[in-house]
Structure formats: structure tokens, C-alpha cells
Nucleic acid binder design. Sequence first.
DNA 1: TTGCCTGTTTGATCCAGATCAACAGACATA
DNA 2: TATGTCTGTTGATCTGGATCAAACAGGCAA
Lengths: 283, 283
Amino acid sequence: MHGGFHYQRATSANLDASQIRYKMNPIPDALPLISSVMSTVHPLRNVSVSQLRTACSSCSLHELCLPAGLEADEMEQLDRIVNRKRPVKRGEYLYRAGGALQSLYAVRTGFLKSCVLHDDGREQVAGFHMMGELLGMDAIGSGKHMCDAVALEDSDVCEIPFIELEQLSRDIPALQRHFHRMMSREIARDYGVMLLLGSMRAEERLAAFLLNLSQRFAARGYSATRFNLRMTREEIGSYLGLKLETISRAFSRFQTEGLITVQNKSIELKDPERLRALIGQGA
Amino acid sequence: MHGGFHYQRATSANLDASQIRYKMNPIPDALPLISSVMSTVHPLRNVSVSQLRTACSSCSLHELCLPAGLEADEMEQLDRIVNRKRPVKRGEYLYRAGGALQSLYAVRTGFLKSCVLHDDGREQVAGFHMMGELLGMDAIGSGKHMCDAVALEDSDVCEIPFIELEQLSRDIPALQRHFHRMMSREIARDYGVMLLLGSMRAEERLAAFLLNLSQRFAARGYSATRFNLRMTREEIGSYLGLKLETISRAFSRFQTEGLITVQNKSIELKDPERLRALIGQGA
DNA sequence: TTGCCTGTTTGATCCAGATCAACAGACATA
DNA sequence: TATGTCTGTTGATCTGGATCAAACAGGCAA
């Protein structure tokens, strides 16, 4: 893959050309640049072109991310407090459990996981995070992070100093509103995970997981039916409260039943409808 | 127990007198009425005494609840938007999944549960809520409640219209701050539940559950070692991702091992330390 | 007092998923 | 190109908790 966009690097061999193009379209890194060069400075904003490149307003994620619903001038104010493009290499920690809360982080590119730790070494994956999603909200209550955040592939995040975000959200109702929405959606997601962990059987859990990924990729303009997993079977298992062997077997069974095609990390949903029907057969 | 305060009714026999007094003091139900007749209006506030009686500033929960950390005048502003004392009878719904978000609710007295529902009828208890805790935050993201909230015993809640809370929290930084803390703590709690559901065995889960209740009762000035369950074995099981028979057996085993005394809903923790040690033996 | 009705306890059996084990690819480094 | 280290697959066996079943206790209405 060329340019700064190596999101699909590891698995490009598995994908046909049309899909690669499709996946690269929605989040163009280079295109905005070009158009911004043509018109020197954005009429509404007093920032240089180089800043504009990564500004929220030119970021293809802004409808999903924190600035959703902001006016241009409001977005500019938010831009001023955001430290854009902090890279996190695969395997690196964005923050660790126990560390003091400084900032929230919005994923620009890449993929991360949050892990809750238990004294005895057990760890539980509490979530996987993709572009436009906000991390670190668990730390606001105590001032300390409750979990580790680790990059599953080379990623870029926007760093949003929390104190300043809180300050700014008093001045910008739309920002306040959307920040509350994002916290609340995290709570709603957590409730869904509890339902999954507390009352679904293994195959239902995996089906729900795949459909959730599918829906999130689709919301970002990617294919809903073909995507690559960024996490290992063990990490999926941890998230779903199952062992890696169980994940592997369930994948195999889904494949022999024609529900999906799996090859290593590459997934194709062949029959999303039947997958959906699979959830809710139990009990 | 007399008056409207029967929170401890079923278990008062277990408590010594000093504790009962303590428990009854903070939330006087009947007395306020009388004194309001006597002293018409509070000097600092332009509200009648009858309103003051149940005002946040006179509520024993205010250090745990939403107004934590507010100045007197700020608390007064909050008071003005809060609709105090909405009673919810045992078994009644405070709100239902799918219903539009109007208000958040702070528990004044009593005990409630939240249940996430699945199409096929399965339900998962997502949380139990006691005095000072805030319900409904899952609904902010979508504008619709994600779960049912049901009273497990006759309860009173304060109704806090969400739009007005959001508005007011722009004017009162301490309120904004604390509201964010409460949402964040819910997220942190959820992560803990995921850890529990995803990687603990049955007895660890129950021990963690008992210790969590103990700690929450203690934070409210109740005994940390003697309390009454407000929920059935089935509800505990649902919350912990286990069947009611498993809960019952685990209780029995804890009892024969001298960790606790159980009799129906009444619990005494005989050896909290060993209970704590029990968590984290597995894996 | 009787007779539900709901919730709880305890025993016997079963099974979904864990555990143990062997092996096969994929990928990274030299 | 060889080599070692992760990661994933599949089989055989085991087991914690589910399921099925029976009996019982407490609350409450008639």
C-alpha cells in the first residue's frame, strides 16, 4: 500500500482490487490536501493549510467523531485544543491502567483494544476501537485509567486534553451534547456486551461480534461483508468470554455451514441474514 | 418501621439501635411537612419550607448523588429543576426499553434493577441501583432507553429532566464535572462487570458481587457486613451470568465454609477477608 | 386454617465449552 | 534460505455449571 495509508497492508493479498479501492476511498488522506492547496486558506478559518490538513473539518471522520454536529467556527475552536496525529505503533500502549487521565483519544486510523486487568494476571478485553471512536472515558470518574489501551496495528490518534474539552463543552452546547452522547453510547454498548456475556452461547456471541464489526465498518464506508480482523483469536475469545479454541471451532463451523468465509484474519460474511437469525435461537 | 420509611423494614431485627437511627435520620419522610408549616420560607432560598425539606441540600445523599461538590447557591439552582419524590412501587417500571429519554433518575430510597432485553425473551440484569445512584444514562446517546428499570422494592426517585440538566451543567462547572464523573463511573463499573462475566468462575463472581454490595452499603453509612438482598437468586444469577441453582449452591457452600451466613435474603459476611482472597485464585 | 404461589434448596444427570495435546502455517530475523 | 516464534486448527478428554426434578418454606388471600 502506498502513502500514509497502510491500514490494509498486512492483508492486501487477500483482497481483490475493487475492494481495496473501496476501502481506501472513504478516508482519503491525500485528496483533501490537494484541494486545500488550491484555495490557500479556508475562508472561515484562520489556520494555515498544513494545519488544515489534519483539522477536524477536513477529517473524513468528523461526522462520526467528537465534532459531529458542530458549526465551522465551533470546529475551529475544538481544533485548537486537539493535538492531532499522535502515532501509536502496533503493540504500544496508548495509556495504562492506573495512569492519570490527561486526555481522551479519538482514533484516526488503526485499531486498538482496551483491556481490564485482574490482580492475578487474568485480562479481559473490554473493547475494540476503530476510527472515529473515543477512548479513555472510563478514567473521568476516578482520574485514573481503569484499563490498558493497546494498538493492535500502527495507529494514529487525536489527543484531546480532557480539562480543556470540559471547558470548551461549556461554551459549545453542540459539543457538550455530542460528548454526552458518546459517553452514553459507550454505556449502551457495555450493556450489550453484558447481555452477550451473560446470556448468549458461544456461536451467538461470535455471530453478534461479527455483525457488530460489519456494521461499524459499514458506518465508515467500508464493506459490510468483507473485512479483516485486526485481533487474534485469543483477543476475540477474551472479549467474548471464550477460549481461543472455541473461537477457532466456531469460525470453522460457520464456514462449513456457508455463513462466512474465513482465511486467517480475512472474513467474508456470505449470509449476514442467517447470521443475524442465529442470534436469538438459544434459550 | 413506621412512616413512609420502611427501607429496612424486613431486616430491622438484624440491626442495633444506633444503626437504625442513623439509617432513619438522613431521609426523613414525614417530619418535613410539619416543620414547613412552622417556618414558612428559608432565608437563603426563595422556596417554601415544604420544598426545602426534600431539597438536595437537606438530603443526606447529596455527597454521593449528583449535587456532590456544589455550593449552596448552585445546589439551589439544581433543586429548581429536580422533580423530587416520584414514588415507584415494587414491581413498577421507572422506564422501559425503547421509551424516549425524558429524565435521569436519582434513587432516594429503595432499590431498582436495570434489565437489558433480547428479542427472544431472554433478559439480562445489567445493574442494581441503590440510594444516590443515577439511572438512565444509557439513553442519552440514542434518546431512547436501552433497558427497563424496575423497582425491586417500594422506592422514591428524584426526576432530573435531562435537557435542563445539560443546560444547567453549562453554567455550573462543578455540576458538569460531577455529571461526567457519574457517567464515567458507570463505564468503569461496566468494565468491571465484563471482567467478572468474561473471566471469573461462579464463586468468584458471587464473592465479588457480595463485596461490591457491602462496599456500597458501607459508603451509605450502613453495615458493611450485614445487609439484606433486595433481589431474588434468579436476579443475582442473571446479573452474574449464572443460573439461580448455581447461586443457591454457592451461597450454601460459602455458608458451610464459614464465609457468610445466609438466611433467605439476609446476609452476614463472616469473613470478608477470605471472601476477598477468594477472588483471584482462579486461572 | 387451608391452599395457592413464588422463591429456595438440594440431588442426579448432562453437555457446552474448557483443557490438554499435536501439528501446521505465517511471519520475522538473520 | 533457514530458523524460531507466534498464531491458528483440529482431535480427545474432562468438568463446571446447566438442566431436570422433587420437595419445601414463607407470605398471603379466601
